[in-house]
């Protein structure tokens, strides 16, 4: 009973505002610490790979960014759905707050993927299933942001964006599956960025540390942004 009350208590932007600030700060500090640890492991503990040399060290940020880009889209769609279903302003604001960070990580995933692909597979861009899906995911993020930017009425912008996000999240598995099928038809198994170096324990540790760092950073950024949105609207 008390948890139910607490839930609705924090659904009000006014009461959420200070809480968001405290969480954002804590997460920012945590992100910095985890990133330092992850980078240390990635550069000074993890050994050089036999096949890819030191170029493989890009995976520590590439994989983390890719995971974040996909995870954030789902979270964004979740808040969008809550906002549509319960008509809560704060949920819609959270969805809008997450989008730019998600788009940023998608771009980072694409950029680092290209720079990893060049020395490893010979080309900056390969129409590998995952990279192509990431590219489409970037378009989905940008479309969401463009739609919300084009609508002046805040309420309509929230709800239109929410519907688009939900339609998008439902389509993402379909898009991924279709791109994967297309990739096997046209590329064969020769080029695949999914084949990472055989995982030494240190490599996995580094990746997970960076992923956690990016996750905490995303929370901090989204909460800081939602505070801006609250200030702008209220």
């Amino acid at each position: 009973m008390s948890t139910a009350i607490k839930w609705y208590w924090f659904a009000s932007p006014q009461t959420f505002y200070p809480l968001a600030g405290r969480i954002a700060l804590a997460c920012a500090v945590g992100a910095a610490l985890l990133a330092a640890a992850g980078l240390y492991v990635g550069f000074f503990v993890a050994p050089t790979d036999a096949q890819q040399g030191d170029a493989y060290r890009i995976i520590f940020i590439h994989v983390a960014a890719a995971w974040m880009s996909m995870f954030l889209y789902v979270v964004m769609a979740f808040w969008a759905a809550i906002g549509l279903a319960f008509n809560t302003r704060l949920s819609a604001m959270m969805a809008s707050a997450i989008a730019p960070t998600g788009a940023m990580f998608t771009f980072v995933a694409l950029w680092t993927g290209a720079l990893w692909g060049r020395p490893t597979w010979g080309a900056y861009w390969v129409w590998d299933a995952r990279l192509t899906s990431e590219l489409i995911l970037l378009f989905l993020y940008l479309g969401f942001m463009a739609l919300q930017a084009a609508i002046d009425d805040r309420r309509r912008a929230d709800r239109a964006g929410a519907l688009l996000a939900i339609v998008g999240v439902v389509n993402v598995p379909i898009i991924y599956y279709s791109v994967q099928w297309w990739n096997t038809l046209h590329q064969g198994a020769s080029v695949s960025l999914t084949r990472s170096p055989s995982m030494a324990a240190a490599m996995l540790t580094g990746m997970i540390l960076m992923a956690l760092a990016f996750w905490l950073y995303s929370i901090a950024a989204a909460l800081a942004r939602v505070r801006c949105i609250i200030r702008e609207r209220e």
Binding site: L142, G143, A146
Partner: peptide, 9 residues
Amino acid sequence: LLVLPLYVP
């Protein structure tokens, strides 16, 4: 921009 990514499959 909104619809073309959804057209991909």
